[in-house]
Computed example of a mutant assay.
Amino acid sequence: MKFYDWLGKAEKTIVQALLVIIAVLIFVQAMTRRFGHPISWAMDVSTFFFAWVVFLSADVAMRKNSLVNIDIFIKKLSAKGQLNIKIINYIIIIIYLLIMMIYGFKLTITTYHRKFAGLPWLSFSWATVSVPLGCLLMLITAILETKNLVKKGSETK
């Protein structure tokens, strides 16, 4: 679990840094465009970083149990009912993430020859690999959370 905790801190730090870089790049790109000397690669780098931010931050949110949810009806259930719904929900998430990983790897392979317009030396696959890798990180989180919920359920019996 130490590595898992370290990985979570690393993800959060990377996401924070990338968000700052994206904001600075877009601001600088807008200013240089305003003065007639646009930076052609700034939007491509921002898009590349944004793909990573989306999937890494999704795992950060999942680790903190901060993903958007609607629990109006679930709160009306008993504690055991709520726990069972959470377990079912995580099982559905695990299945979805496995499917996303498969299609994410296929996407990464199919975009291998596609290049960023402003960065012709960079394959678009480096951005699309964020899908299966981010889903793998979320899958680990979902499995660990499901395991904890099942353990919690067996302790309350």
Rank of each mutant, 00 (worst) to 15 (best):
S123I: 02
G134W: 00
P120W: 01
L139T: 03
S123V: 03
V150K: 09
V129L: 10
L149F: 10
I140L: 09
L119Q: 04
V150R: 03
K115W: 13
W121R: 12
L119K: 07
S123Y: 00
V150W: 12
E145Y: 12
K115C: 09
L137N: 01
G134I: 03
C135L: 06
S125L: 05
L136I: 11
G153T: 13
V131R: 00
T128L: 01
K151Q: 14
M138S: 09
L122D: 04
I143E: 06
S125W: 07
C135R: 04
G153Y: 15
E145L: 05
S130I: 08
G118I: 03
L139H: 05
I143P: 07
P120N: 10
W121C: 05
G153N: 13
W121V: 14
V129D: 00
K151H: 14
W126C: 06
T141K: 00
I140P: 07
L137I: 09
V131M: 11
N148L: 12
L133M: 13
L149N: 11
S125A: 09
V150C: 08
P132T: 06
W126P: 02
K115N: 14
W126H: 11
T141F: 02
W121T: 07
L119T: 09
L122C: 04
F124E: 04
L119G: 04
E145K: 08
I143K: 00
L133W: 12
K115A: 15
P132H: 10
V150S: 01
W121G: 12
S123Q: 09
